[in-house]
Structures are given as C-alpha cells and as structure tokens.
Design a protein around this nucleic acid. Structure first.
Lengths: 243, 243
DNA sequence: CAATCGTATACAGTATACAAACAACCGACC
DNA sequence: GGTCGGTTGTTTGTATACTGTATACGATTG
C-alpha cells in the first residue's frame, strides 16, 4: 500500500516551538526592542525548562533579532538605520545574482508558479488582507530563490530577509490601497521581464523593489537612534507576555 | 581616561572552548568526514558535561561543518563538489561587492596595512611555513572586509570562507614553491589595482583568485562523491580522539 | 524461510539542581 | 564628598538525572 497523502508526523522540538513563539512576540511588538530575555521567565511563561529556551534564544541570535553577551543575558535588538542600509545593500547584490540564475533556469513551470503567487497576492489585496500580501510577497521571493537552484544562496538571502521581516510587516501594513495595487502589479511586470530574459532590466527592477522596501522601513518604523555600541540596555525593561 | 588599546578580558565559555577543539579536530582530520559526534562521548573526552558540547555542536552546524537531525545526532559533514561550487560562486559575488566598497574607501593607511600583511606572507613563504601563509591570506581578506566597512557583509563573507577553511589549508599546503611565490606576488599586484581605483579590473582579479582556490580544492581535496541526500551515515563510525 | 512485529539499547531532548559571574548596593575610609 | 572594597541578589553557565524517540536485532507467525 503506497499510502499517498500521508504526511510524516512533524517532529518539532520544544526549542523550535519556543523560538517560533519568541519570533512572533518580537514581530508583533509584544516583546519590544530592548526587552531582556531572561531564560527563567520565558521558561515559566511557556511552561518548559530553561534548556529549550536557551537554544531558542541562540537561534534568534543567529537570525539577528537578539543579542547576547556571556553572563549578561540576551535582549531584543533594534537595528540602526545604518544596519538597515547594510542589509538592504547586501540584498541588492544577492538578489541580482538570484535574478541572473533565475533567468538562466527559466521555464514555463516556473512562470506559472510565480503567476499563481501573484494571483494569491492580488486576492489578498482585494480582500483587504495585509497579512496575506506579506506572506505571498515572501512566497514570491522564496520561489525565486528556489528557481535559482543554489541552496546556500537561498539560505543566506532568506536569512537576510528574515532580519527585515518584523519591519516589512509593519511597513507594508501602512501601504495605501493604490500603493498596494501598484505593488502587486509590479510583480506581474517583473515576471514579464524575467520571461524576456533581459538580465540587466530584471536586476534593475529588483534593486528598485528592495530599495523601496528599505525606504518604507526607514520612514515608517522606529529604529535605534544612533550606532549602539553599548551592548545591554541598562534599565530592567520588563519582558512581558511572550505568548 | 580614554583607555584606548584596552580590550575587554575575553571570558570564553566552555562551549566556545569545546567548539574550538572540535573545529581543530575536524580541520586536522582526526575527526574525519562522517564521524558521528556523540554528545556523551565528546563530553567525557573533554571533561565537561553534555550541555556545553550541545552548544558547541550547534555552533559547528551554523558554520556548515556539521549536520544534525532531531533525535538522530550530529556528524561531520563532507561537502559535495557542487556545494564547493556554490560557496565559491557566492564568494565571487560578495567579494566583488567588497572590492567596490574598498576602492570607495581607499586611503593610504589601508594600503600600508595590506602591504604589511603581504610582507608577512612573503616571510612565511621564504621560511617555508605554509601555516603562516594560510593565516596571512586570511588576514588579507579580513582586512579587505574591514576596509569595506560593512559589518554584515563581513559576517557573511567570513562565514563563507570559514566553510572552506579546512580545505583551503589542505590545498594550499600542496602548493609548489613557485606557485606559492606567484600567489604572494599576486597579492601585491592586487593592491596596486585597488590603488589605481579600477573597480572592474580589481573585481576580475579577485574572481580569478577565488576560482583558482576553488579549483585547487576540487583537485586536491577529497569531497563527497555525489549529492548526498541521505542525511546520516548509517554505520557507527567511531569518533576517536577529539583532543 | 521470509516478513513482520516486539523488544532492547543507544542517544538526543528535556528537566532540575548547583555553582560561578556579573551588577548593584551599601558602608568605610581617605 | 568621592572612591574603594565588601556583600548580596539576580541571572547565566554547567552538571546531572530523567524521558522520549530512533534504530537494530531477535522472536514469532504465516
């Protein structure tokens, strides 16, 4: 018996689960910038022991959302405007590389996949569902990364984007109706460019896409005022309500 | 009191210490590809408990030296030739970006710093010290990354290079006398190009540098034979002598 | 004899307990 | 009054014990 349609049981560890909760809490703002992540507190709130919490925090450190120093603990990190610039400039370089490879690998199936994502995005827009737009925007990029067929590139560039996720969500929510509409349309136009095989134009397009996202973040989101060389926030900022 | 030149006392945790030992063991081959890293065993051999070992292994996973699957443990990973290609192609893209920024920021002090590194490299070559050549080669790149003044770029590109470190050391050791000499000279010539401000040429040079390193690795080092979708090596490959 | 299931064993995942380190506070001494 | 030094509390770092899962091997049945 082949037993198709049967998915393997997802075996997520507590660590991953905790990391997901913390990511969510940071993204939606209930864990604001500077909040200290005290292992004991988080563990009690989520009903697990400190070990999974430690590992979860470590994951967030890798992802750039949290910083920590030995014996001094972890806290939610707020990037500076300069760091947003850094991330975006790297994204431009890497996404241009992605585009180059996508065009090399281009085929009909890829086009359909991308078109359907844009369709879902448009549906979300018409339904007034910013969350869905955000998700489909991510799906679009993720599809491009996969089409590029370069697993390491995917890892790096998706990691970069995840560093912006909490701001992108916020900034895109503030998009006007016409703005969102133009945003969605630009994706369809971008597919046309990919299809035409014009690498230079496609790279220019995606660079504009990334830089406009950066601009939206810089104008709509609160960021750290200056370069912050001081590691920990001195004040005991309460880390309330993780779930 | 400004107290420049004073570095904070580095308070290394056991985790970092263990990670360093494991890295070294992998680099010098005493932990060969496919060796399983059993937490209990490593902990006993190094005289610490399992917790620091877990964290150390996690670090190596981030660095790409080790893979792990839930409930199945960790093992030393041997990249495929394709993955070496992936790493190198990304390095080309990123180092070209580095070069662009280095030229933008170029000044006299930077030139002197790079020249002195090449001088040390040449000394190591004449002294027949391949270890030193390797170190100075790293120092050269690290200096470039710093001059680019882009901390995230530094993080990403240095991480990429660390994935190659164990192979670069091996491949560069096999360099002939004249080969090493040409290698060193090429660094001085590269500084000249940077000084001239010719971005395109500098990018071409560094691309050649990276791709020749790749070729050396592919020809001199043993790599995984095929794409390895099978995560763990089934056989209980003994993990002998970590220290 | 083959295929499948049960059972044992090994090891990662998790919980709890203890020790060490940092930071803040407070008192003493210049 | 300010600085130095001890003292205490909080929090991380580490050790140990326990639980759950995966794999292998042997038992059982057709």
């Amino acid at each position: 018996m082949p037993l198709t349609e049967v998915q393997p049981v997802k075996t997520r560890t507590f660590s991953e689960e905790v990391a997901e909760r913390l990511r969510e809490a940071i993204r939606n703002g209930s864990l604001g910038a500077g909040s200290r992540l005290v292992e004991q507190e988080v563990a009690e709130q989520l009903g697990v022991s400190r070990v999974p919490v430690r590992e979860a925090i470590q994951m967030l450190v890798e992802e750039g959302m949290v910083r920590k120093a030995p014996h001094r603990g972890a806290y939610v990190y707020l990037p500076t405007a300069y760091e947003i610039e850094e991330i975006s400039s790297l994204r431009v370089v890497l996404e241009c590389f992605v585009v180059e490879r996508v065009i090399q690998n281009w085929n009909r199936a890829h086009e359909e996949r991308l078109r359907s994502i844009v369709a879902a995005m448009r549906a979300g827009m018409q339904g007034g569902d910013p969350q869905r737009i955000y998700e489909q925007d991510y799906a679009f990029h993720y599809a491009l990364w996969e089409i590029a067929h370069h697993s390491l590139l995917l890892e790096v560039v998706s990691g970069l984007r995840s560093r912006l996720s909490r701001f992108l969500y916020e900034a895109n929510s503030a998009l006007s109706q016409e703005g969102a509409s133009r945003h969605v349309d630009s994706h369809d136009e971008f597919i046309d460019v990919l299809k035409s095989g014009d690498v230079a134009t496609a790279q220019q397009e995606i660079a504009i896409h990334i830089l406009s996202a950066k601009t939206r973040i810089l104008t709509h989101c609160q960021l750290a005022p200056v370069q912050s060389p001081a590691p920990p926030p001195t004040g005991p900022v309460a880390a309330e309500s993780v779930r």
